[in-house]
Amino acid sequence: LTVQLGNLEWHFDNPEQALKMAEELAKRYQLKVEIDNGTLKFK
């Protein structure tokens, strides 16, 4: 699973870790998370 923020990307083997990080980033920057083809992206 990949977490993508702008041109930064983090790759996780563990989806739970990816979701946890995505939630933290979304909270911190007040963004919405969307999943696009196995990639978590922020809007």
Rank of each mutant, 00 (worst) to 15 (best):
Leu1Ser: 05
Leu1Asp: 02
Thr2Gly: 03
Thr2Arg: 11
Thr2Asn: 07
Thr2Gln: 04
Val3Thr: 02
Val3Leu: 11
Val3Ser: 03
Val3Arg: 01
Gln4Gly: 03
Gln4Asn: 05
Gln4Pro: 03
Leu5Asp: 02
Gly6Arg: 05
Asn7Gln: 12
Leu8Lys: 14
Leu8Ile: 11
Glu9Asp: 04
Glu9His: 12
Trp10Ala: 02
Trp10Lys: 02
Trp10His: 02
His11Lys: 09
Phe12Arg: 01
Phe12Met: 03
Phe12Cys: 15
Asp13Val: 10
Asp13Lys: 12
Asp13Ala: 11
Asp13Pro: 10
Asn14Glu: 08
Asn14Phe: 08
Pro15Gly: 06
Pro15Val: 13
Glu16Thr: 11
Glu16Met: 13
Ala18Leu: 06
Leu19Ile: 12
Leu19Ala: 04
Leu19Thr: 05
Lys20Cys: 09
Lys20Leu: 10
Lys20Thr: 08
Lys20His: 08
Lys20Val: 08
Met21His: 09
Met21Tyr: 15
Ala22Met: 06
Ala22Val: 05
Ala22Leu: 07
Ala22His: 01
Ala22Gln: 01
Glu23Ala: 12
Glu23Arg: 14
Glu23Pro: 01
Glu24Met: 15
Glu24His: 13
Glu24Phe: 15
Glu24Lys: 14
Glu24Thr: 13
Leu25Gln: 00
Leu25Ala: 01
Ala26Ser: 07
Ala26Cys: 10
Ala26Pro: 00
Ala26Val: 05
Ala26Asp: 01
Ala26Tyr: 07
Lys27Arg: 14
Lys27His: 09
Lys27Leu: 11
Lys27Pro: 00
Lys27Gly: 05
Arg28Tyr: 09
Arg28His: 06
Arg28Leu: 09
Tyr29Ala: 02
Tyr29Glu: 00
Gln30Val: 05
Gln30Thr: 05
Gln30Ile: 05
Gln30Arg: 11
Gln30His: 15
Leu31Gln: 01
Leu31Phe: 06
Leu31Tyr: 05
Lys32Pro: 03
Lys32Trp: 09
Val33His: 03
Val33Pro: 03
Val33Leu: 12
Val33Asp: 00
Glu34Gly: 03
Glu34Gln: 09
Ile35Leu: 13
Ile35His: 08
Ile35Arg: 10
Asn37His: 09
Asn37Glu: 08
Asn37Ser: 07
Gly38Tyr: 06
Gly38Met: 06
Gly38Lys: 07
Gly38Cys: 12
Thr39Gln: 07
Thr39Cys: 13
Thr39His: 07
Leu40Tyr: 12
Phe42Arg: 01
Phe42Met: 10
Phe42Leu: 15
Lys43Arg: 14
Lys43Trp: 12
Lys43His: 09
Lys43Asn: 07
